[in-house]
Design a protein around this nucleic acid. Structure first.
Length: 272
DNA sequence: AATCGTTCCTGATAGC
DNA sequence: TGCTATCAGGAACGAT
């Protein structure tokens, strides 16, 4: 499932090839992936636009199209944005294709179709951006910022970490991993964390995301980078998807619980 | 305002 | 062997 490190990996790859190219043609094969407008309007709105830059906001890929606004791609659970040669075979889960003016293609592929494609004008984009929380790898994300947010919520800290209105980019995998690194029980209400624990959590979030980017993200099953390659961080996971296996620190069996309908993995001995 | 539950989707897997 | 039920979860949305 693509979280911040996976999306960042794709963005960095596409940043080396896409800027300067123009979108020559758009074909939407799965209209439900474009929820905001008819696929014809979406395609017409993008055709001819030149890509200025490719950036990331939260778990979204943003193509800056200058006066043509922005193209936002959210990969959902199983989305892939692939830079493909035009003769690559088409897959049955292909949702949309963007033909660029050098003949290359960007293909959006999504088995479960939880992802979405959307156009933003300047105002829409600003409002959307403002609705999202702090980028955890930016300077605005400080222990003080995290502490102020945590003090306001009684939600279990693991569920709380995944709420994109507060801190963005952390999903199910890295929430469990960050809490393990910080030694905090995922069931603790956010407002019960001590200043020292908030400090550790802040460091753990930044650390795990930074390392996962270095390893080009986590592939358990579906995630692929823009070249179709798997990420290498799965081997470094300490608790996620390791229920019943020994904790890498103490040897006790890793636990799996369900919070808010999502799996949480943790070590009850190391996390208090 | 904060919180919680529901919904979307289909491939992989478990169980009979 | 082949069928069916269950599970995986990001984010929008509605209800409380």
């Amino acid at each position: 499932m693509p979280e911040l490190p996976e999306v960042e990996t794709i963005v960095r790859d596409l940043s080396r090839v896409a800027p300067g190219r123009a979108i020559a043609a758009v074909e939407v094969l799965r209209p439900d992936l474009v929820p905001d407008e008819p696929p014809e309007a979406f395609a017409a709105g993008l055709t001819g636009a030149r890509i200025r830059s490719v950036t990331r906001r939260a778990k979204n890929i943003l193509f800056d199209l200058g006066e043509r606004g922005f193209l936002r791609v959210n990969l959902g659970m199983t989305g892939r944005l692939l830079a493909a040669p035009p003769d690559a075979p088409l897959d049955s889960h292909l949702g949309a294709r963007f033909t660029l003016n050098d003949g290359s293609e960007l293909r959006y592929h999504d088995v479960r179709r939880f992802g979405l494609l959307a156009r933003h004008d300047e105002d829409t984009n600003a409002a959307w951006d403002a609705s999202l929380g702090a980028e955890p790898l930016s300077g605005a994300f400080t222990p003080e910022h995290l502490a102020a947010l945590a003090a306001r919520s009684r939600v279990a800290v693991k569920t709380w970490l995944m709420d994109q209105r507060r801190i963005v980019g952390v999903g199910n995998i890295y929430a469990s991993e960050a809490l393990f690194r910080a030694g905090i029980d995922p069931r603790r209400p956010a407002n019960t964390l001590t200043p020292a624990e908030v400090e550790r959590l802040h460091e753990a979030v930044r650390g795990v995301l930074t390392e996962a980017i270095e390893f080009r993200g986590t592939t358990l099953l579906d995630y692929r980078d823009a070249s179709g390659e798997r990420g290498g961080f799965a081997r470094r996971l300490r608790v996620y998807d390791r229920a019943g296996e020994p904790c890498t620190t103490c040897g006790a069996a890793v636990d799996r619980i369900v919070q808010g309908g999502r799996s949480t993995f943790f070590c009850a001995h190391c996390q208090r």
